[in-house]
Design a protein around this nucleic acid. Structure first.
Lengths: 227, 227
DNA sequence: GATGATTTGTACGTATGTATA
DNA sequence: ATATACATACGTACAAATCAT
């Protein structure tokens, strides 16, 4: 990412930061499900710390949208309405589209080759039908694009958005069908990048993200907007 | 804005939140200039509170980008490099373009009329050459567009970005020339909105924002990207 | 509706790490 | 290079508000 991390707080030298990362992991991995109440004292005991750094960690998580605070009423893992979730996915799609558009015009030769390599590696994973591995490679692919936009504020924003959506993205690639489709869409996007048509790449990326969110919305039973 | 405020922290019932708003005002208004060191104890004395809520306020400001924290080394008002400032302006421009594009397709008749009224009111202000008043009306105009996008996450994001840039936007409308130009650009944008061409409105909005940032970059002596 | 238990919000003191002499 | 000074990070205690009884 960047020298100034997405949340604005320098990396894990403080206890609060350590706890923040730990909690974020538990939330994004699903160990702490959306809607779960979080008790400061319990977390403090669990991490062997006092309430002070825990409070700071929770505040930081709140500003990144992973938890919601209600003054004097406690903290809980963010549980988004399907409406709001749709809005988040839409913003994610548009943000990714912006990234690839800028990246098309600005990425270096090295970055272009690196992106192609990432894509080729994932091709093999599609054959093996290894969902977990593809999930990781997919993240790497998209993250590479964020940075290739050569706008670190935008890149941080994109990473933060992805993190915020993480709790709702599990089981994204249910069915090898979706997995193959995802890879094919990446292929089309790269083709436009290589041709230097950022606008087209952006449109394809937006569609790619909205397709993914629609699939997810269907899975969650909600209704993702713009599906 | 929204039921969940941009920072994720519900409005001013806690001391920490009060202090946060107070400090944010001082920073965005320029009373606390970029680069200024902020001393917890001093702020605590000034607000008649202890250091604890001050710390929380500073943490919140850090995650919205208004201040930067260095663990055990203190806090200072964010002083952006001209490079990073350019990146921020670029993201702002693209975000605003996105807002107007979505708004074009989604705004209600009421919202459309309201936007036109805001625009007409500012026309009068241009004649009077009242810079401060135009500045406020300009903010209202843009904010109305954020909400008309009918994506509250996006709207919150846009508001947060604008706030983050506020310390660097003073003296934005130096010279009545720039003021008239701004108004004319708004006019062109509205025209496209009324014609229902969201893409065109977006392009014009992006150019509008980049023009403004370029003017500002010139004023600040830096080099805003994309000028 | 009032009271008590629980949890958060705030205050303050100590420890630790950074910067300076 | 060592030591001193200083501000922050953390821990603990108290106060206040919310929720349950």
């Amino acid at each position: 990412m960047n020298q100034e991390s997405a949340s604005g707080v320098p990396p894990g030298v403080t206890l609060a930061e350590t706890i923040r990362v730990g909690l974020a992991d538990e939330i994004t991995s699903g160990a702490l499900a959306p809607g779960t109440e979080i008790d400061e004292q319990a977390v403090a005991r669990r991490f062997g710390a006092s309430r002070t750094p825990v409070r700071e960690a929770l505040r930081a998580l709140a500003s990144s949208g992973l938890v919601v605070l209600s003054p004097r009423r406690g903290v809980r893992v963010a549980a988004l309405t399907s409406n709001r979730l749709g809005e988040l996915f839409e913003l994610m799609a548009e943000t990714e589209a912006l990234c690839i558009r800028l990246a098309t015009y600005r990425m270096t030769a090295v970055e272009r080759v690196a992106l192609q390599m990432l894509h080729q590696q994932s091709a093999r994973t599609v054959e093996l039908d290894d969902i977990d591995r593809y999930d990781q490679q997919n993240i790497d692919f998209h993250t590479a694009i964020y940075h290739a936009s050569h706008n670190s504020v935008l890149a941080d924003h994109a990473v933060a958005l992805r993190l915020r959506l993480a709790p709702f993205r599990r089981a994204q690639f249910r069915g090898e069908l979706r997995l193959r489709q995802s890879h094919a869409e990446h292929e089309a996007i790269i083709a436009q990048v290589l041709q230097g048509d950022g606008e087209a790449a952006g449109r394809l990326m937006r569609a790619h993200m909205l397709t993914a969110s629609a699939a997810l919305a269907a899975y969650l039973g909600g209704s993702g907007r713009g599906a």
